[in-house]
């Protein structure tokens, strides 16, 4: 009963094109689940369905046992779901610290406070989170001018600020260098295991996927075509043909780091 996310027979089509077709999978506490597949396979649609941005045509999504039917993204968030975006979405007119403070304000339902100065609220909590993801030295810089890798870390801090039980990460390491990617994912794995958060992420970097995922699901043309441990997916001929190509799949990391 430690399932943070259960997806059953999920389908969604856009103008006749079946973007997600009868997809089912689940995710447990403290686990990292990678969703891979060719571009246009329906990964982003899947994410937006879980997140509440889109409504499914059919099928159910349960987060921490609750059916999310009809919920808006902000309601899904309130269930304890953090999200990072493929193209980073931060408040560019605010500093790094203020971005994280915003989440605390929202968590504590103080966004309509008209009395206090924002600068004084939840400062220490936000700072602590920045320290956790390693961008505390940048706290006073505007998010709009941050280096990309740091921005991704800020996104992680924002996603973690309401102590989520489920983390949705859409291409968390896109646009980063190899070493940076691995570092960010190591950090993420450590945090999610410490706080026993379930993570669903998409990724095109196989070093990241095979280095950190506990399980992998593969989508193609909206359908789930393979599911299993990294070992199992690596050996799958069909996946190799439609996705890996000539790419030499790296060996799996020994888990339990």
């Amino acid at each position: 009963m430690a399932k943070v996310l259960e997806v059953n027979h999920l389908s969604k089509s856009f103008g006749g094109v079946q973007a997600v077709n009868d997809v089912s999978f689940h995710l447990e506490k403290g686990q990292l689940l990678a969703m891979i597949g060719p571009n246009g396979a329906g990964k982003s649609t899947c994410f937006n369905l879980i997140n509440g941005q889109l409504r499914p045509d059919s099928g159910t999504i349960r987060i921490l046992g609750k059916d999310t039917r009809g919920m808006k993204p902000r309601h899904v968030w309130a269930l304890g779901v953090g999200r990072t975006f493929q193209i980073t979405a931060t408040f560019t007119s605010m500093t790094v610290l203020e971005n994280v403070q915003m989440v605390f304000l929202s968590t504590h339902r103080r966004i309509r406070n008209v009395w206090h100065k924002t600068a004084d609220l939840y400062r220490d909590e936000a700072m602590e989170l920045l320290r956790l993801v390693g961008v505390e030295s940048q706290w006073n810089r505007p998010c709009g001018i941050l280096a990309y890798g740091d921005l991704k870390r800020v996104e992680l801090a924002i996603a973690l600020a309401n102590r989520p039980k489920l983390l949705l990460m859409d291409e968390p390491t896109a646009g980063m260098g190899t070493k940076e990617r691995l570092k960010l994912m190591e950090l993420t794995s450590r945090i999610v295991r410490d706080q026993s958060i379930g993570v669903l992420f998409t990724e095109h970097d196989m070093d990241v996927v095979f280095g950190h995922a506990d399980r992998i699901i593969v989508l193609s043309y909206g359908r789930l075509i393979a599911e299993g441990t990294p070992e199992e997916v690596r050996g799958n001929k069909k996946v190799k043909e439609i996705y890996f190509g000539t790419y030499a799949v790296p060996p799996c990391a020994t888990s339990g780091v």
Binding site: I36, G37, P38, N39, Q86, E171, A174, G175, H204, M206, I242, Y243, F244, G245, T246, Y247
Partner: peptide, 13 residues
């Protein structure tokens, strides 16, 4: 500019 970014390995091929 970063042509392989965000592409599936088989497309990168």
């Amino acid at each position: 500019d970063e042509p392989s970014e965000g592409l599936a390995p088989v497309i990168v091929d």
